[in-house]
Simulated scan of single mutants.
Amino acid sequence: MSTFALVSVHSRARELLPGFIVSLIVAAAASFLSEHYDAPVMLFALLLGMALNFLAADSSCKLGIEFTARTVLRIGVALLGMRITLEQIAALGWKPVALVVTLVVVTILVSVVAAKLMGFQRLFGMLTGGATAICGASAALALAAALPNHPQKERATLFTVIGVSALSTLAMIIYPMIANGLGLSPEQAGVFLGATIHDVAQVVGAGYSMSTETGDTATVVKLMRVAMLLPVIVCAAMITRMQGADPAGKRPPLLPWFAVGFLILACVNSTGWVAPAIQGFTNDLSRWCLVVAISALGMKTQLKELAAVGLKPILLMVGETVFLVALVLLLMHWGL
């Protein structure tokens, strides 16, 4: 029996390896271009992946690309838990926590309603709203993994990743100017940047471009938004369950395994027993898993399908971004 299992595993690995290696090469190229041109790595991974979309139809690569876009993505999301500690959140007090919870819940609800009014599926609103409110491309990928299957889900996910990456880059440049223009203190500026910019890397870049104190505060507030990923994934999983079983007849779990992994790693990281080197390695591994997965997703996408999305989704995402900025400034004015 063990020999049969080994043969089965070996056979499965041979099927998956070509597609996974191609995704890894695309991710490595995207990382090189990102460092060279100082631009979002997710965006490069998507664009390079889409340029090689013919490989997803190739029999030798198809299974590996499917596996990478699904399973490697979920591993990367689970590893995000190592970025968070309860001590970091407690150090800022209750006000930033209340602000983050409020902005995430309100932004997602408004996005779902806006998406419905604009003629989209509610799930598209949850996808774009979650990406805007939580942590950009990582949240979009995590939510897509938890939401029910839909013919347009992959296209919607890729569009969201592209949109949120572009908006996050713009925010990194513009939002520090807004903070200076409003005369915010270093701590207030950190809360503003951490609560509004989409991706973690851009929050770090914007925060530390202003001051060390602003950068530290912005990073912790941003990680609090990342922590909101878990309850939002659970809500997405509950929606999936309420919509019934999938075509294979399997009822999706209330708490997906990658969400359990996220929670466990966040708890382990909160103990203070994890060495900084291990934290750094896990964070790098998480980033690589997400970049490799988005490369695979890009290869599964047809450019003409993405071009057919139209103007309305762009307006939806820009509107969500502007709404988030206005909401955060309002909440800060009220003392949160």
Rank of each mutant, 00 (worst) to 15 (best):
S2H: 07
V161Q: 00
A308N: 04
M172Y: 15
L141I: 13
A140R: 05
G298C: 13
G261F: 05
L158Y: 07
S2G: 08
F192D: 07
I21W: 05
I84Y: 02
A326I: 12
A140T: 09
L327N: 13
L92P: 11
I233W: 00
L43F: 15
G319Y: 06
L52P: 07
L230E: 02
T217F: 08
R251Y: 02
I65F: 11
L182Q: 04
M1P: 00
L255G: 01
L141R: 06
A115N: 15
G81N: 03
S11K: 12
T132I: 10
H150N: 12
F323I: 10
L123Q: 04
M210K: 13
A171G: 15
V41C: 02
V234F: 08
V101S: 14
V309T: 04
L311R: 10
V41Q: 10
G125A: 03
A189S: 15
R225W: 09
L285F: 15
G81I: 00
W273M: 11
A307F: 08
G125W: 00
Q152V: 02
L16V: 15
L86I: 15
A140D: 10
F124I: 03
I75H: 08
L17E: 03
A166D: 00
S270V: 12
L6K: 07
A145P: 12
V200L: 12
T85G: 01
M42V: 13
A133C: 11
L223F: 15
H150W: 03
V22W: 02
I75R: 06
V268E: 01
A227D: 11
F20A: 14
V232F: 08
A28V: 14
I233E: 06
G244N: 09
K62C: 01
L99S: 06
A115Y: 02
G335P: 01
W94E: 11
T3R: 09
S295F: 01
G136V: 12
I65T: 10
L52A: 14
T217D: 03
R155F: 10
G19V: 05
M172H: 14
L86F: 14
S211W: 03
T102P: 02
I134F: 05
V322G: 11
S34H: 15
T240S: 15
L123D: 09
Y37H: 12
A140C: 07
F54T: 13
K116Q: 09
V72D: 08
T219Q: 07
A13H: 05
